[in-house]
Design a protein around this nucleic acid. Structure first.
Lengths: 214, 214
DNA sequence: TTTCAATAAGGAATTAATTCTTTAATGGCG
DNA sequence: CGCCATTAAAGAATTAATTCCTTATTGAAA
């Protein structure tokens, strides 16, 4: 019990979690090349990062490496995918089927990472009632009727001026985790998980680095 | 000269840069509501962040606030957009017109943030030679002929197993900044700017937070 | 069998980022 | 006119993240 509580409170650092999918991608490439073991040293050298960072990041999972050998590739992939939640398929609703939302609807990459969009909601009469990439689009006003389905994850891709309002209704309708693609920092109940992913934030960093070189 | 060098070396922290677009979004909404001034206190309260963090982040720009009043909305938007590089339109090439690449090709949001995709490169004979969203798709093998155009920014949306190789050719062809959407940490010359934006990394964080609540 | 080099892993030290504290300024109100 | 509340901004303290250091292990080579 004590132990559990501690685990709950001491979360895996977000930077570490964000790096793990890139390790996974690397290790899968190694598997393709027929490698049976990978060491943090090699991962780090090839990826241009610090080797102890790789070790530390992997130590948050239940993986144990072998001294002088490294990590066994197959179990490492299994454990990483399980740990990151890519193996269990979570279902999600998408809110706002504009250009970005539509792109996510058609992107089959999501399924490989454990997320399946089962329905979309929008207000545009031209798309409501239709199917896109096998996903039906309903009117936002009908969303609350879907509450019993028990879907926990919502993808927010509405225009900025609607973000806060829609987020509010998402939570009302039972959503417990919001993948927020708008640049708006939405305010929701404390126990709702919000993951902000502004597509354009990395652009700001890139421009700054590029321009500060002259 | 001394001064300039110091500015070059002491970079604006990446977390700060990544937050700025969200401030910009907030302030633009405030302008829509007819506000003439915004204070860090209000921004922070509405966005659920720390007020001194807002002040500190904004202090990296050349903006100065007024005591007891806050920041003037119009100049703040101007300065932020300039500072973040959203006002000057940079041109870019896109490498890999799969589902994600295609989505970026059709996304008109990019232009609002100062990035214009002027050509795409792929190997798929079904799309090479065609136009998508007004952007012509060429064969990757022809890319080196475009070197004289002087385009500095490349968007990398190829499959993981091609990422490193394509990145290498991008640099050969004059690309100085790579917006990398693959989970692969590509290795390039030190002076090439790489901005990693794996669409699925935030998913790992979201799943972890969601699952560690039970 | 012995030595050597490569490794994981834990903890210490360092560095980066965030939050807290203090100061000075100033518009609005009594 | 004088006080009060609100604010920006600079610097200090704290916290989080990364990198460095040490130890123990072990496969491979001598």
């Amino acid at each position: 019990m004590e132990e559990e509580n501690r685990k709950k409170r001491i979360l895996v650092p977000e930077p570490a979690l964000r790096r793990m999918p890139s390790y996974l991608a690397y290790i899968k490439l190694a598997r393709k090349d027929g490698m049976k073991y990978v060491s943090s040293t090699h991962i780090a050298r090839d990826m241009g990062v610090d080797p102890t960072q790789v070790t530390k990041d992997l130590s948050y999972t239940s993986i144990v490496g072998k001294t002088r050998v490294g990590y066994e590739v197959e179990p490492l992939i299994d454990e990483l995918e399980n740990f990151l939640g890519f193996r269990i398929m979570d279902e999600a609703y998408l809110f706002g089927a504009g250009s970005l939302g539509m792109a996510l609807l058609h992107d089959h990459g999501l399924k490989q990472f454990g997320l399946k969009v089962v329905a979309a909601f929008d207000v545009n009469p031209e798309i409501v009632g239709k199917n896109f990439g096998g996903v039906p689009v309903y009117h936002v006003d009908d969303f609350l009727q879907f509450k019993e389905k028990g879907i926990q994850i919502g993808i927010l891709t509405v225009p900025v001026e609607k973000a806060q309002e829609v987020a509010h209704w998402m939570v009302k309708g039972g959503i417990r985790a919001i993948w927020n693609f708008t640049p708006v920092r939405i305010k929701v109940e404390e126990d709702v998980i919000v993951q902000n992913t502004s597509l354009y934030a990395p652009l700001a960093v890139m421009f700054n680095r590029l321009h500060s070189k002259e």
